[in-house]
Design a protein around this nucleic acid. Structure first.
Lengths: 233, 233
DNA sequence: TCAGTTTTGTTAGAAGATATCACAATTTTT
DNA sequence: AAAAATTGTGATATCTTCTAACAAAACTGA
């Protein structure tokens, strides 16, 4: 019998950690981040208040943990949406990713707004979150580059201030220069446009307007696909 | 001496209310909604804790009040931005309104995210907020309709699902049918696209990317102005 | 096997939050 | 001047996060 990587203690510890996370996520789903109560979690798990501080040093640390894990989960959903439509072409994949983004947000409204809240000093350094969103950006870049017909860097290189900024970002992120400025711009616009619709939808704006935000999302994605699909010349 | 509309008591009461609001807004600016403490406000005003409940029945009521007032303030900023560029044409006015939206959010990040937070049951009925955002929508509709060259309802009427939904909204809101479906759609897209950029900027996304979100906003507004300005059929 | 160390739990308590209650002081009204 | 409405007070209940001191349990190595 080969020695296990995790000791018995680590296993039970991880189980407790997961149980805490599960309770916390239920509280977030019910009433948002501010509904999290370390005390209540501990008691509902059968242990007394301070015991939970053996697992999370502070409330903020638990929140940061939830945010990081939520980010990864959302990113995984997007990847799965893309892969499940891989035989329908990149344009349909992009549409599926967009729908997955919106549906994840609608299914987990409080968790979604949790990691897009105004960044406070406490959990300003969520490297895992940044890495996850960058992974999703890579997904968008890949799909969009496969939609654009001729990805000739010379003919599609822009000269505007925005394109310069996008080029700076590309170099910063070590994105290969096979991605044209158009693709970079469209990937970013896919995110921002979708995000705007979804956040306003969560705020209840479209409810008041009696408008189906899904139609708006579809229209935006269609617009982006059309721009990507047309010859950039 | 004619009888004043406000009694002496109402005047002092309003003064106290404003002082409470001022302290609360400072707390929000510093650390977001959750940083509001009725107790701390009361004590910093020289009165003891429970006294503040003579002015606001609960913490949520104070928050709702701040949200409603913030909405009105933002809407006023947008209106002022439009009027201060009235002699430069509707396209420049629209750009100014967009910049004002972003700048207000950047100047008041926590207040901005406060009234675009996930709608909870407690302050779900913010009629003032809805009215304010509708006023801003009217502003966008007016500017965009003046950018579109020929506002012929017959030639610009759409047939898609989205246009049907927009038409439903137009009727619901009693918006005059001189606004074409194109204008309705562009007004909504102006809001959603701008909102997406601004909220992601507040979350620190572009900071990590080292991208100036102002360039993105300008590009989006330019795109919308170009679509509005081109002949629709 | 058994002592020593680490980990994990406990209770007690500080400091602060929202919110209610009973009561006092003040101000307006009659 | 008396009555009523308003605005303040302190006491209190109940919640929160989080620290401190201490006890029990579980692993570790000789």
């Amino acid at each position: 019998m080969e020695e296990p990587v995790l000791t018995r203690r680590e296993i039970t510890r991880n189980r407790t950690l997961d149980e805490i996370r599960q309770h916390a996520e239920e509280q977030v789903k019910a009433g948002g981040v501010e509904a999290i109560s370390l005390n209540a979690i501990a008691k509902s798990m059968g242990m007394s208040g301070p015991a939970i501080y053996r697992y999370f040093a502070s409330r903020d640390e638990l929140v940061a943990d939830l945010i990081a894990r939520g980010y990864l989960q959302l990113a995984r959903s997007l990847g799965e949406a893309s892969e499940s439509h891989v035989d329908e072409g990149p344009d349909r994949q992009l549409a599926a990713v967009a729908r997955a983004y919106r549906e994840w947000a609608l299914a987990n409204p409080h968790r979604f707004s949790m990691f897009y809240a105004v960044r406070s000093e406490s959990h300003a350094d969520l490297e895992a979150a940044i890495a996850a969103s960058q992974g999703s950006m890579d997904l968008l870049l890949d799909l969009l580059s496969r939609i654009t017909p001729g990805t000739d860097p010379d003919t599609t290189s822009g000269t505007g201030e925005l394109d310069d900024a996008l080029e700076h970002w590309r170099v910063l992120r070590d994105v290969p220069d096979t991605y044209s400025p158009l693709v970079l711009r469209l990937a970013l616009l896919t995110w921002t446009r979708l995000h705007g619709i979804v956040t306003l939808e969560l705020a209840g704006v479209f409810e008041d307007m009696e408008i189906d935000a899904g139609l708006l999302c579809d229209a935006e994605i269609q617009t982006i696909v059309e721009i990507a699909g047309s010859r950039p010349a």
